[in-house]
Write a protein that binds this DNA or RNA. Sequence first.
DNA 1: CAGCATCCATGACGATACTG
DNA 2: CAGTATCGTCATGGATGCTG
Lengths: 138, 138
Amino acid sequence: MQDGTFTPPGYSDGTRTARGRVFESDCPTRKLLDRIGDKWSALILLVLGDEDTRFNDLKRQIGGISQKMLSQTLQSLKRDGLIMRTVEPTTPITVTYSITPLGRELLAALRFMIEWAEVRLPEVEKAQRIHDQALGAD
Amino acid sequence: MQDGTFTPPGYSDGTRTARGRVFESDCPTRKLLDRIGDKWSALILLVLGDEDTRFNDLKRQIGGISQKMLSQTLQSLKRDGLIMRTVEPTTPITVTYSITPLGRELLAALRFMIEWAEVRLPEVEKAQRIHDQALGAD
DNA sequence: CAGCATCCATGACGATACTG
DNA sequence: CAGTATCGTCATGGATGCTG
């Protein structure tokens, strides 16, 4: 858990799959997706994965995010232990956000999805167009 | 793209990172998360990754999902080309949902996050408890 | 600079009832 | 069995204005 790599357990022995847990009432996957499946968490983690960044820098880099959502999402990520908030008592105050080892680990898993999206989204959108044209053909 | 494996491009040469695209206006990652970051898509993909499943079977397996959301999410996943819908003209009608190669590929990326969630969520929740107790300590 | 407080619109989602 | 249609609720998130 020191670096950004994450090796998932199981699957090699063939006995344990994700299926068993995902439908329990306290399903970890559901909880995780509730948190980082929102509109901005993944983007913020991605920026902080590259370099420590200050509040208004984040706001500039992530186009379209409102101050409210940035602040709110940062708090949530900090509460989850995925990012850190560092205050320097300058005037005016200077606040820097950075990713934690735990956050970097999640980011590593996230990158697989990000890369998939970048490579395959054209196919998804092509499927959408075909689907939308074939009205009634099902 | 035939099996469920997905090898992300880039990163080996060190020049290309996900950063460049993720903040474009038509960011693929944002679009993807808008689609499968919802409450049920990931769960449905996970079930269908195991075996083809019928509508009411899905409803039974995924605890807590409403008929409306199941139907709606299935349509969305089908439109994206991630799952298929097969109708057998029995009486009454028999409908089976199955995952596509594209969907299986996404599922493979998703599993990294699922596994991370199952392993690390206790740490996240521990961080939450510590954070909530340290009121004012920042 | 780094936020918080407030108001408001949208839509995600659930519950219920109905259909081929 | 496999859905559709409608209604109501609540959370997400944007816009705006204010603060230390």
